[in-house]
């Protein structure tokens, strides 16, 4: 008997890039995060071959969840074809053998920055959000040790102070992204820099959402069918961006979240932020057989 018969053949890396002990730790922390919705779990953020701040947190979660039968979609600012999204997606499929897709309906794991797709996610899909700053209390409490105590005490009164000052200064709430939200009536989380438009999509959602910050080494989760309530004043209702009346100049879509594109003339045109939805809409208009799934919003109103 030789040593070679007892060991596996040499390979450049473990399956899914991360080694077994790293994945085991990630799995444990993911389970903990799901058990206590919205509570930040510290984890040992491993080195991955992209720079901190480019989605290392999300990437580590995805690398842990991935299997050969997975289908991955990676979104950066709503687009699948940006450099960052394309290279993360290619990396994921190279180290795991998983299939790549642009289509929200086909994907089993969706890693995203800034957006949640406009098509409704199903209970067999997992959304992984990359988070730059996981601490909602940072604007009001720069000391992280005290912030952790405030989380333990559910002492969130000060978060309304930020909203109060926005109301005083601008007459409305101007918090555009990372809107602090109460998860399951207990922990306030920052839902990563998704726009206000996307926060209601997390409320009682059918899918699992995992949020991970690689640089800050924190991981938290919104399990399926969990309450996610944005913080509001009792007399100032929560409002999403007023994009219902806008039409995408390329696909003709309306009632979805738009990107504003300034023009030479000084005006601007709008483009659907979820770029693959726009592509599907154009294909459908040209008579190709394309399936667009049920959407979260209809005419700017969230469907129940």
């Amino acid at each position: 008997m030789t040593l070679a018969t007892l060991t596996r053949p040499w390979a450049a890396m473990s399956y899914g890039f991360l080694d077994a002990s790293a994945k085991r730790e990630m799995r444990r922390k993911i389970i903990k995060a799901i058990a206590v919705p919205g509570c930040q779990m510290p984890y040992a953020s491993r080195e991955v071959p992209i720079a901190r701040g480019w989605g290392t947190g999300g990437l580590q979660v995805t690398l842990t969840l991935i299997k050969p039968a997975s289908v991955v979609k990676v979104i950066d600012q709503g687009a699948d074809d940006s450099v960052n999204a394309a290279s993360i997606r290619r990396f994921l499929s190279r180290v795991s053998g998983a299939a790549e897709t642009w289509d929200t309906l086909e994907a089993t794991i969706l890693q995203s920055r800034h957006r949640i797709p406009e098509e409704r996610l199903r209970d067999d899909q997992v959304l992984v959000l990359q988070v730059p700053n996981p601490e909602p209390l940072r604007p009001v409490q720069p000391n992280m040790s005290i912030a952790r105590q405030m989380h333990a005490d559910a002492d969130y009164g000060r978060l309304w102070l930020v909203l109060y000052e926005q109301m005083v200064r601008s007459g409305r709430i101007v918090q555009g992204a990372a809107y602090p939200s109460l998860v399951n009536g207990r922990h306030v989380m920052t839902p990563s820099p998704i726009p206000r438009w996307d926060v209601p999509k997390l409320h009682m959602a059918h899918h699992l959402t995992l949020l991970s910050a690689g640089r800050e080494k924190r991981l938290y989760a919104v399990p399926p069918f969990t309450r996610v309530e944005p913080l509001v004043f009792s007399d100032v209702p929560y409002q999403v961006e007023d994009h219902a009346g806008l039409t995408c100049h390329r696909s003709g879509l309306s009632g979805v979240f738009m990107n504003e594109i300034p023009q030479d003339s000084g005006g601007s045109v709008f483009e659907a932020s979820d770029s693959n939805l726009g592509i599907k809409a154009i294909r459908q208009a040209e008579g190709e057989a394309t399936k667009i799934g049920p959407m979260w919003y209809e005419n700017g109103e969230l469907r129940p």
């Binding site: 002492d155 009164g157 309304w160 102070l161 109060y164 005083v168 009792s234 007399d235």
Partner: peptide
């Protein structure tokens, strides 16, 4: 005091900690 936040916000913070959630009342 929270030196970086507005004066009225500093007063409102006290009310917020005690659970007041109506903007008009806070103001």
């Amino acid at each position: 005091l929270l030196m970086g936040h507005s004066s009225s916000g500093n007063v409102a913070e006290r009310l917020l900690i005690a659970g007041e959630r109506s903007f008009a009342t806070l103001r």
